[in-house]
Simulated scan of single mutants.
Amino acid sequence: MDLSNGLVAVDWGTSNRRVFVLDPQGNILRSSEDDHGILNCSDFPAEVAGIRADSGGLPILMAGMVGSNRGWVEVPYVAAPATLATLAAGVKWVEPGVGIVPGVSYLEGTAADVMRGEEVQLVGALALGAIGDGLVAHPGTHGKWVEIVDSSILRFRSVMTGDIFAALKAKSILSDLLAHPAGTGEAFIAGVDHALENPDLTAELFSTRARVLLGAAPAEDASSYISGLLIGSEVRTGLGRVRADNVPLIGETVLTERFAIALARAGRTTTIVDGDTAFIAGIRAIAGAAA
């Protein structure tokens, strides 16, 4: 892939799509975000042609659900342990100058997991020197807790925290309580602490409603408490396999800050790595290795 004139990096997810037009040094010339995720796209070739036209014909490297069995072209997963080299070798060239990065799969006994998109941010964070070997957390709809060994994605576990929160908010007995804003104050911390100490998530979710009904807790605190409960439960799961005193967080600031609070309650320190910065660095690293 010729990167001498620049590159277009596309993070193409299920619901949304982000496009970054980069100069040869990796600086963002312009970016855009829309709701043309794979579930809202019926003509992928036309969409990609539009991106190319808008960028002056620069090469395009895409990642995320665009390479899934529900996307444009299914790109086989690279099996863990996955490295920059194996990811670059697994790029699917759909058209000249248009590629899709493979995701990563993990299978060991009954443990099975997959990721698409997060691998790019992990590679980018490694390239930037923002993370090294150890445990890395990637909060999101399906959060990832990843073990990095010898700069490779060795094993990982996904947790459906964001998905569960959204489902509870949209249609559950807790929907009315979750209509309140979820803050990070005392109620959030109480939820985190409970989850870190007790493996009773589904029971405690109902208890949250019962306390409100019985006047033992204010309704306006319930959303914050449930957010803390879910995040604390994820942190408990994520920390369960390996010892990690410092856990870097990759992603959006609003979400990573919540997880930083939860990790602090678990006695861990953390650093926050901006997700967009890591994604761009990862796409550039993969494009360079695949050139």
Rank of each mutant, 00 (worst) to 15 (best):
F206Y: 14
A291I: 04
I153F: 01
M1T: 12
G99L: 02
N27F: 03
F188T: 00
L178G: 10
R211I: 01
D150S: 07
Q121N: 02
G140V: 04
E234N: 08
F259S: 03
V73T: 13
L7W: 00
D163K: 13
W145H: 06
T202M: 13
F206C: 00
L3Y: 12
D23I: 08
V123A: 12
R116A: 01
D200R: 12
R243M: 13
G240M: 11
R157C: 10
L196A: 06
G67Y: 05
D54I: 07
L61A: 00
E119L: 00
G282E: 04
N16K: 15
L58C: 01
P81T: 07
G251L: 07
H180R: 08
I286Y: 07
T237V: 15
A166L: 03
Y77E: 00
G185K: 01
S158I: 08
A49N: 14
E197S: 13
G71A: 02
N16W: 07
F188L: 10
S175M: 14
T256V: 12
A89I: 04
A9G: 05
W93L: 04
A53D: 15
T184M: 10
V120F: 11
V10W: 10
H142K: 11
G134C: 13
E119R: 11
V78R: 15
A46Y: 11
E33T: 11
A222E: 01
E257Y: 11
I131W: 00
A219C: 10
D35S: 09
T14I: 09
L126C: 05
Y106Q: 08
L3I: 02
T14A: 04
G143T: 06
S68M: 12
S55K: 03
M65C: 06
D245R: 11
S42C: 08
T161R: 04
T202N: 06
P248N: 09
A285I: 09
G64A: 07
G282H: 05
G99N: 02
R258H: 15
S68W: 08
G129C: 09
F188N: 04
D274G: 04
D133N: 13
A89N: 14
A88N: 10
R116E: 03
A264P: 06
E119D: 08
D245Q: 15
L29Q: 09
A49W: 11
V10G: 03
V273C: 06
A290K: 01
D221N: 15
L177E: 10
Q25L: 07
F156I: 04
E33V: 10
G275L: 09
T14G: 10
A291N: 08
T256I: 10
A290Q: 13
S105K: 02
V192P: 04
G71F: 05
A170K: 15
G132C: 09
F206M: 15
S223D: 09
E204Q: 14
A203R: 06
G143W: 02
T83D: 11
G215R: 12
R116N: 08
R241P: 05
F206K: 06
G132N: 05
G185L: 02
H138T: 08
V104S: 08
G71N: 01
L263I: 03
T202S: 13
L263T: 08
G26H: 02
L61I: 11
V123P: 08
S227R: 09
S223G: 04
G215N: 02
S152G: 11
E47S: 12
H180A: 15
R236G: 06
D163G: 12
D23R: 07
N16T: 13
I231G: 02
G288A: 14
E257G: 00
G56M: 05
V10P: 01
M62I: 13
I148P: 03
G103S: 12
